[in-house]
Simulated scan of single mutants.
Amino acid sequence: MKLYYSPGACSLAAHIILNEINVDFDLERVDLKTHKTEKGHDYYEINPKGYVPALEINPGLILTENVAILPFLAQHDPKQDLIPPSGMGRAKVLEWLGYLNSELHDAYAVFFGGQLTDDEKNKAYAEIDRLLSYIDKTIGESDNEYLVDDNFGPADAYLFVLTNWSNHIHHDLTPYTHIIALRNKVAERQSVQIAMRDEGLIP
């Protein structure tokens, strides 16, 4: 398999899960401004949508969108811990992935789309805070170690990556103590450390 990625982008979640399932895979970096890969390929020819991640499963077989890629990868976990095979547990993972992708991801993405006025920034921060308040409250009311159950999974990786963007937009995460606790737990995983080092995000 090959993951097309951009450092620190949402493709980092797939990178983490690839490390978790311990398979051989290649990485190819994408410049999202020029839409060229590090090997000089036109990224639009690989993924016409133009954004990451894209997962090349076999030559010519490309899967895009985190809500598809993350469960696909997680189901290959040899320990069968990353995602329930069926039933309500799997549905809950997909529910979280859908929410993170359609709501929280979009809320952060506003800051990466161009220059914002102060008023636009304040509205965007407020929307992020609204979503994080819900997530923090939900985590706090749960008896689970992670978002869905007591096992780390793709939704946890995705939440970690998205909230990491707070560092880049000068957004304060400290009010969200349950999210921070979950982030700290995720950050300690070897799969996360390796992915972040490989993408040049940590020394």
Rank of each mutant, 00 (worst) to 15 (best):
Y4R: 09
Y4W: 09
S6R: 07
C10I: 02
I16W: 05
E20G: 05
F25I: 07
L27C: 11
V30S: 14
H35M: 08
H35Q: 12
Y44I: 05
I46C: 03
N47Y: 01
N47M: 03
V52F: 07
A54D: 13
L55A: 07
E56P: 08
E56S: 08
P59Q: 08
I62D: 03
L63K: 09
E65C: 01
I69F: 08
L70K: 07
A74D: 03
I83S: 02
G87A: 08
G89I: 02
R90K: 15
K92S: 06
K92A: 06
V93L: 04
E95F: 02
S102I: 04
L104V: 02
D106K: 15
V110E: 12
F112L: 03
L116V: 01
K123D: 12
A124C: 03
Y125N: 13
E127D: 14
E127H: 14
R130T: 14
L131Y: 12
I135S: 07
T138R: 15
G140Q: 13
G140R: 11
L147I: 01
A155W: 00
F160R: 04
V161H: 09
W165T: 07
S166N: 09
N167H: 12
H178R: 15
A181N: 13
L182N: 04
K185L: 11
E188N: 14
M196P: 04
D198C: 00
L201R: 06
I202R: 12
